[in-house]
Design a protein around this nucleic acid. Structure first.
Length: 487
RNA sequence: GGUCCUGUGGCCGAGUGGUUAGGCUCAGCUCUGCAAAAGCUGCUACUCCAGUUCGAACCUGGACGGGACCUCCA
């Protein structure tokens, strides 16, 4: 197997991937905070890691993919002040916090299923690991790198930074961070400006709270990932991922916690996916420019002229590298939708090709190109470019403009199976069992009647059939060996 | 204000010191009763200025534009 190269945020370079204990791979991705519907930007991140997960599986790795659900501890601001996001929503909606959690967790899973993302191996929750989080906080206090004050526990960043590289992930200078961190209200419990909370004292009205050695409270945001990754993947594992917006604060603090806890950087490779933008601006809940997946599927959004299917959206996202920003627009989506349909039509055509004795295309090279693209830091846009080469070959062979052998057809089927279905996770959309068979038969009848009319040079009838079918969203395609159709 | 990233054809987007990215759009051709589909061809792009080089869109410096992070966010 060829070497897989992954861009590692720690080194800012592409590095050859070497699993700690092959064929096993441990992979942790920071999941959503379930206090509202996931928007499309969130989905992009998880789809990017879905491709990574799928490709590692395809290469034969046994991957344990852990993606958490943040159902407590994520405050409105990162200054460790303000309300817990989920508690706040619960109060507004007059629901139990766990009702909020349940609603949006289920919604998140449903959406990811629509996008055909594989479920992670383990999907642990922050509330299910309160004890583990407290244990880590205790240990860090013992090591002298965290302190309790007034019922809360804070990580002592400046003390930690004396012996460790706190800013390994960002390459920033600590002094600059200290200078530039803004003063926030309500942080008088902290010793240092960069200190962050491991445990936060709960106010009486706070809904989600647990007893602890430091009194009743709730965990800080960053510590949940340290607790859950350590529990399920060990103190050191292979890959850790998340959105780029988590790099500077969340992941930096996560590393500091782990190093303080057990002296080890948790993951060897840190991967960060870029943002989805709308008109050049980051899509985010706080900016109010976010798209919900359902709005996209139905087309019910001011920026959209029509709806787009989950697979078309998935393909759209694959056409950009995960480390580039992806700008969202109606035109770009429409273009991708066509490309996706072309890809799927060619697969149907492939199933009807008749083999020749000789061939004039090097499909082995094509397959190799596909692997090379993916091995180069999961370069799906280049992979897709190669797949369009395959489409050209399939369509040309169908037009008898070039020839493929039986082995070529098998190879093309493999390429589709491996890269289109297994790795990119695309699937055919219109399949629906029985009614489909009936439709096939009816369409055969209609096209046979039209062929008869054409043979009789009754073009008025044949055109009427074609036009009526077009109105019904069915496209008729006349080829050399008769007509075919697609929706 | 600080740190970092980025600027590619009508649109979206790869890429990289000398060789076609790819998709979509548009135009022409082939095929076809016509159209569509499909194939072929074309629209020959790399913000600007200076430098390094035999040669730069790709390296260096500067200018201008856009973005991210430093504050909740995937």
């Amino acid at each position: 197997m060829e070497k897989l190269f992954i861009y590692n945020t720690l080194s800012r370079k592409k590095e050859e991937f070497k699993a700690i204990n092959p064929p096993f791979v441990g992979m942790y991705v920071c999941g959503p905070t379930v206090y509202s519907d996931v928007h499309l930007g969130n989905c992009r991140t998880f789809m990017s890691f879905d491709i990574i997960y799928r490709y590692l599986l395809h290469l034969g790795y046994k991957v344990r993919y852990v993606r958490n659900i943040t159902d407590a501890g994520h405050l409105e601001s990162d200054g460790d002040v303000g309300e817990d996001k989920i508690s706040k929503k619960a109060k507004l909606a007059q629901l139990e916090p766990m009702e909020i959690v349940q609603k949006y967790t289920v919604g998140f899973r449903d959406i990811m299923a629509l996008f055909n993302a594989l479920p992670p191996s383990i999907e642990p929750t922050a509330t299910g690991h309160i004890i583990e989080q407290q244990e880590i906080a205790k240990k860090i206090i013992e090591k002298g790198l965290a302190y309790e004050h007034n019922g809360s526990v804070y990580f002592d960043v400046e003390k930690y930074a004396k012996d460790n590289n706190y800013t390994a992930l960002t390459g920033r200078k600590l002094d600059e961070l200290l200078e530039n961190t803004r003063d926030l209200d309500g942080q008088q419990d902290k010793k240092g400006r960069l200190d962050f909370a491991l445990w936060i004292k709960a106010k009486p009205e706070h809904l989600m709270k647990w007893p602890s050695p430091w009194g009743v409270g709730f965990p800080g945001w960053h510590i949940e990932c340290s607790a859950m990754s350590t529990k399920y993947l060990g103190e050191q594992f292979d890959l850790h991922g998340g959105g780029m917006d988590l790099q500077a604060t969340h992941h930096t603090n996560e590393i500091a916690q782990n190093v303080a806890y057990c002296g080890k950087t948790p993951a060897n490779y840190w991967m960060h996916t870029n943002m989805l933008t709308v008109n050049g601006q980051k899509m985010s809940k706080s900016l109010g420019n976010s798209f919900l997946p359902m709005e996209l599927f139905t087309g019910n959004h001011p920026l959209l002229t029509k709806g787009f299917s989950p697979m078309a959206v998935r393909f759209f996202m694959m056409q950009t590298h995960y480390r580039s920003t992806l700008d969202f627009s109606n035109e770009a989506l429409t273009a991708s939708e066509k490309g996706y349909q072309k890809l799927m039509e060619a697969y149907k055509t492939l199933q009807t090709l008749t083999p020749s004795a000789n061939a004039n295309e090097d499909l082995k090279a094509l397959e190799r190109n596909c692997y090379e693209a993916m091995n180069d830091d999961f370069n799906t846009p280049v992979l897709i470019a190669h797949l369009f080469d395959a489409i050209r070959i399939i369509n040309s062979a169908n037009d008898k403009k070039l020839f493929v052998t039986k082995e070529d057809i098998q190879l093309l089927n493999n390429i589709y199976q491996y890269f289109v279905f297994d790795v990119m996770g695309l699937k055919k959309e219109e399949e629906s069992g029985k009614s489909n068979v009936a439709l096939e038969n009816v369409m055969k009848l209609v096209l046979d009647l039209r062929a008869k009319a054409k043979n009789n040079k009754d073009f008025a009838t044949s055109d009427e059939i074609r036009n009526r079918l077009t109105e019904a969203n069915i496209q008729v395609k006349d080829g050399k060996d008769g007509s075919s159709w697609s929706i």
